[in-house]
Amino acid sequence: MSARVVFQQADIARALTRISHEILESNRGADDLVLLGIPTRGVVLADRIAAIISDISGTPMEAGSLDVTMYRDDLAKHPTRTPSPTRIPASGIDGKTVILVDDVLYSGRTIRAALDAIGDIGRPRAVRLAALIDRGHRELPIRPDFVGKNLPSAQTERINVHLSEIDGADLVSIDSAAR
């Protein structure tokens, strides 16, 4: 099994800065914007994007987290996942624009679960999707609004996103043909 690094620390930083600008641009500012990261690494990414947006816009912004475990439709196919807490900023999500943040966009099922989870919490004006990596192989009609990098991959490959807050370093690698 060989791991190939495809994205370095600087690439990640550049991608997140670009995504932050694109979010502000499409939302015409930071007003009524709610960032929700999907655990585990989506939460870290959402926190980083929130920090960048706070810097650019000058208004402090906080990201929340949205656990989707309880909304998955494939519970029996994997080892039991322990849910993570869901944290919603105090202002709530009703009438807001929610930006979902995840590390890797793949089948789309996680995002489907996230949309269901959001529906049980409130009624946002709009929901957008930001992903650091889009590796393709979608199984649902879902596409990202903001992407760090498109990384066409084979289904046998594994994409690993490492973030310093969790993994000690920033990088994205591909394990090929993990058998």
């Binding site: 475990t69 519970l75 322990t82 807490p85 869901t86 049980d120 919490i121």
Partner: peptide, 20 residues
């Protein structure tokens, strides 16, 4: 801990989860 997560969802208006 999972029960804590469940308790959190029971604070919401929509208490029902699609999990099972």
């Amino acid at each position: 801990d999972v029960a804590e997560d469940m308790a959190d969802t029971q604070q919401r208006e929509v208490k029902k989860l699609p999990t099972l």
